[in-house]
Every structure is written in C-alpha cells, then in structure tokens.
Amino acid sequence: MEYLGQCAVDSILLGGLYTLMVIGLSLSFGITRVINFAHGEAIMLGAYGAYWAMTLWNVDPLIAMPVLMLLGGIAGYVLFRILFTRILSAPAANQILLTFGLGLILQNVALTLWSGDQRSANPAYVFSSFQLGDSTVAVGRLIGCAIAVLLVGGLFVWLKHAEAGRASRALAENGEAAVLMGINVNQMYAIAFGISTALGVATGTIMSSLSAVTPFMGFNMLVKSFAIIVLGGLGNVMGSVAGAFLLAFAETAVSYYVPNGDGWAEAVAFAVLFFVLILRPRGIAGQAVME
C-alpha cells in the first residue's frame, strides 16, 4: 500500500503530540475529579513562555521547558490551594464554571499582555527532517513524541514508586479509605493539580514551534483532549495514551487513504469515538467515575 510507512510514522508522531495534550488533563481528573476547562490555558501559557524565552533571550524551548514546568507546577499548586479547594464538594456545574471562567480570564490576560498576534518559535530543528526508508520524519515532531514518552514514563514512575504518587493513586481509587489512612487530601490534590499544570506547560513548549501561538490556542486542543480522555476512559492515564494513539492512527489513515481525507479526518475520528463508546461505554481502559 502506498504511503504505508509514512502513514505509520505520521500516526506515531501525532499520537505523541496527542499524548502530551491529554496526560495532564487525565491525571488531574483521575485524582481530583475536577474537570479542568482551564487546562488549555496552561498549554497556551507554556507556549508563550517558550516563545518569549526564544525571542527575548534566545533560549531554546527545550532548554526552557524544565523551568517553565516548574513555574507552571507551582502556579497550579497555588491555584488549587486558593481556588479549587473551595469547590471540591460543590456540584460539578460549579466546578466547570470556575475552571471555564478561569480559562477565559487567562485568555484575556494573554490577549492584553501580548495582543492577538499569532506567533511561533522557530528553533533550527523545527525545520529539520530525515529519511527513514521511504518516509520523512520531522525532527520537531519526533522530539515532541520523545518528550511525551519521557513524561508519561516519569509520571508512571512517580505514581508507582513515589510516596506522593502512591497516595495519589490511593485517593483516586478510594478517597474515603485514603483519608482514614491519614493522607492529606487537599495537599495531594494540589500536588496532582500542580503536576497536571506542569504537563500542560510542557505541551505548550513543544507546540510553540509546531503551530501558531495565540491566546486562544488552548481551547481547540482542549476539545480534542476531552474526546481522547473519554475514548481512553475518564481519568485513566494509560487509557488516555491508548486513546491518543487510536485517534491519531484513525485521523492519519483517513487523511492518506480517503479523497479529501484531511477534511474528513476529524469526523471519522469522532465516529471511532462514538463506536468505541457504544461497545465500551467507560472507554478503552474502562475506569468507573464515582460521584
């Protein structure tokens, strides 16, 4: 089949990008059960951070990433302690309104600070590519995919082996039992939210050179991210990774093999989501959501 190798390469690279977009969102929902509609703005602020680091100080987005993630993590932690702890037991609609409102505020702050001009960082590697057999591999996307693998790996190590990570899992599995075991719920929630925000910022630093950076870039990513985490199973990080790659393969295959495929790719991908949810209403990884 023509383009098979290129289709596989593009699917994997796109899957890596989608994974980056969703792991933070999936982590925060899995542990805190707060649907964070402001996660797209963490991505947007990360993208601006990387863009300004490159433009003002000539610092490569990849080098700026650890610092930006740290800043994002601290901001997420503080934000959760100040704002989100007040709405943990509120109805879901209140949580959605809070995060949605926060997202709008951050969008408009970005608009005021940096205008609506579309920007993009241009480190040298973003225009590099190499041949792998008959296929062309874009270096910028490959780096994005590699970082996704690293971050997902790091996240799993943290969840499995770190005390805070194990406490987070305990909270996700049974909050009441975790409280009885002496786990500081608000502290753990805030840490998980901070890590989620840091992962969003990391996504933004990668996206800063692959697409246009605007105050409103986060919302489009958020919509796709929600589709992926629903596909994977709400709050299940591994399921989200599987959902990201499934969606990426579906979209890319349609783009290659259907006439006018790029225009149809999203519709077909959402049809996949529809059928998966009919067969497995809790998504691929099938985690229950307790309310």
Binding site: Y3, Q6, C7, D10, L13, L14, L17, Y18, T136, A138, R141, L210, S211, N220, K224, E251, T252, S255, Y256, N260, G261, D262, G263, A265, E266
Partner: peptide
C-alpha cells in the same frame, strides 16, 4: 489537485505528502 484541509489541523503532513 484539489484537497480540503480542516481548520486548526494539527498535522498537514498527509495532505502535503500526497
């Protein structure tokens, strides 16, 4: 060639390659 590209497409590699 007449190919449509969806707005805000995260990856145009397939349509560019074709």
């Amino acid at each position: 060639v007449r190919e449509s590209v969806r707005t805000n497409s995260p990856d145009m590699t397939p349509v560019i390659t074709r």
